[in-house]
Write a protein that binds this DNA or RNA. Structure first.
Lengths: 352, 352
DNA sequence: GTTAGCACTCTCCAAGTGCGAGTGCTAACC
DNA sequence: GGTTAGCACTCGCACTTGGAGAGTGCTAAC
């Protein structure tokens, strides 16, 4: 019996075929896969005894495991990893491509809805949870300011930030000001602050003129704007749209709600998500995190497939899916890749 | 034995005392309450046998039930209802009031964060899930328009809506236009469209001038604005901030994830939530929906405590909590009432 | 009207049992 | 030498059985 080294490079073709078969079977049924059932369904050219021998090797190599003696085999995270690397992703079916394009066409001019739709689309096609973060740049650049009166001593400060969402803040006023006064200040702000990042604004703000009432109002707003820009830059991810979490809840591996809770907990951990998003953006392509490959312990039951979109540094975000490690990887990867390409187009178009 | 009519008006004091005791005990332990345990802990002036008799009556009247013969008693939805009506809500502890005020003080001028904070605060204090919907008026009124260039043939249309969030849309342009052209059009729009509702805009739009390029651009934007306003008006609730869903997931009654899934499903049903919000707003005070009192079947395991804030018709929303029917109602009601009062103050201040 | 006493009911838990799926090993086979 | 049939063995799962314990409803006495 050709004893194999522990977890070596590529598998011989037959072992690979059997491993793929086990994984596909397990992904479909969520039940440990036995040798007999496998030869029955997958028409491998060998008997169940041979399959048993190969499976035993695959287990020694760390790609399969038995939940208990005398149960079938279940893929390990390493097994899935090999599968993901060994199989080419399945490109999204043309009919689905068409369907998605149609849906995105409907919200083409409502950029706020892109991310939600991306998440929903991914959830719908992969039957796991879809995720999307809005595009965001490292250093937010102010594109437009507006001041709207909200009473004699209160104004709404509207900030349009390049490559990001619009923000509304309240600005309490020291002196009574009407819309005309605010307009004058806004004019000033659009001259002085637009196009600046937080860093630039911090440097220039002290030198702003303070001669007229409008100047002073503008300076006051400037301070507030600076704080807001800093806050935007500081947050790793400002929002994560998730859709189809119900899909994940329905998976049998999450029938004990403790595992479910763990996933939810991570999904609220902005810092962790920020790290992952950073990784994915830097990698520049689809990334797959399988179970224990996730940095967070609590994610050891789930797999994450993420792809960046946009332009690194300028405006970028990620889209992807989250599901049990028992997932149809080739299909999911193909789908995530397609949707990220679509988001690329949309964002490119917007921030050309 | 004084046979009682079925589910009559108020209970005699002793029966009420026992019912309250059962509910408090059950809320604390989540275990069916037996007669012996009750007299031991609650120091009622009677023996367990008497308690048994009273409990049997309460069961006949529909306020208690047994999960199975020879188990203790569990309150029914009717029992909780009686409890809610019979007990005065517990006002929020002064120390908690202070804590909340402090937290809201920190985001006083970031109106977008109020709702999330309200939900988070409620979740933290009540140990169930906190909910909040942003303030919204029946007929959105435009407060300000801005056009920002996003390329030669694309503009961002920024809409500030009275009593609502700011919106950003993309406006594809028929002809090449630079920021100066957009400014001219925006000036027109702020003269023609500001202060109008969708209905008013629909009437006036056809009569807008179309002489200059700016006019034509403004008209084009006007059409888009009208569509956006209509959309805002049409959506029953545009967003529901929920925090602390993990609290609910941890409750023993949701250990089977099927019940959990039901709750999540309802939480995504905008139409249903819209109906409830409408009810609460019309009622004008805290409303409690216990289990089967909810219109949605899927909500029969949970209780909802909601309070409106803002001004009906003008800008109003709701805050509240969602948890298992086994909830500390007096405390939760007191907390929800307090937070809704706080939101009232904030919104009043803003839209004075 | 209240209470002690008691028979009765029903869940929960632990231990025991048969079944079936699936394995690893051995010896024969190509 | 790799492959395969055969077989003993293992172990989880579902089911049964048998107390133990909690809690009830009823009855009779107070």
């Amino acid at each position: 019996m050709a004893r194999r080294r522990e977890r070596p490079g590529p598998l011989d073709p037959r072992s690979a075929e059997i491993l793929w078969a086990v994984i596909e079977e397990y992904v479909a049924t969520a039940l440990p896969v036995g040798s007999v059932a496998l030869v029955l369904k997958h028409d491998l050219g060998v008997s169940s005894a041979t399959v048993r021998n190969v499976m035993a090797e695959l287990e020694r190599a760390g790609y399969l495991m038995q939940p208990h003696t005398s149960a079938g085999r279940v893929p390990t995270d390493h097994g899935y990893r090999l599968f993901v690397e060994g199989r080419t992703p399945a490109p999204l079916a043309p009919v689905d491509q068409l369907m998605i394009r149609h849906q995105f066409g409907q919200v083409e001019y409502a950029s706020e809805q892109w991310f939600r739709l991306a998440a929903a689309t991914l959830a719908g096609l992969t039957h796991v949870a879809g995720l999307a973060t809005p595009a965001k740049s490292q250093a937010a650049r102010l594109r437009r300011v507006d001041l709207v009166s909200s009473g004699e001593r209160l104004a709404s400060l509207v900030l349009v930030v390049a490559e990001g969402p619009v923000k509304q803040l309240l600005l309490p006023l020291e002196v009574v000001a009407h819309q005309a006064d605010l307009d004058a200040a806004a004019l000033r702000l659009n001259q002085l602050a637009v196009g600046r990042t937080a860093r630039q604004l911090a440097r220039q703000l002290p030198a702003w003129p303070l001669e007229s009432d409008a100047d002073r109002l503008a300076a006051r707003a400037g301070t507030r704007i600076l704080a807001a820009l800093k806050e935007i830059d500081a947050s790793a991810v400002d929002d994560v749209f998730s859709e189809g979490l119900l899909n994940v809840m329905e998976a049998p591996e999450f029938s004990e709600s403790e595992k479910l809770r763990r996933v939810f907990r991570v999904l609220q951990d902005r810092e962790y998500l920020g790290d992952v998003v950073h990784d994915v953006t830097r990698a520049g392509d689809v990334r797959v995190y399988i179970g224990s490959e996730n940095r967070a312990r609590e994610m050891r039951d789930v797999a994450l497939i993420l792809a960046p979109y946009g332009r690194p540094g300028r405006a970028s975000g990620v889209v992807g899916v989250l599901g049990p490690t028992r997932m149809a990887y080739p299909q999911a990867i193909g789908t995530v890749r397609y949707v990220s390409g679509l988001m690329n187009e949309l964002v490119d178009h917007l921030y050309a």
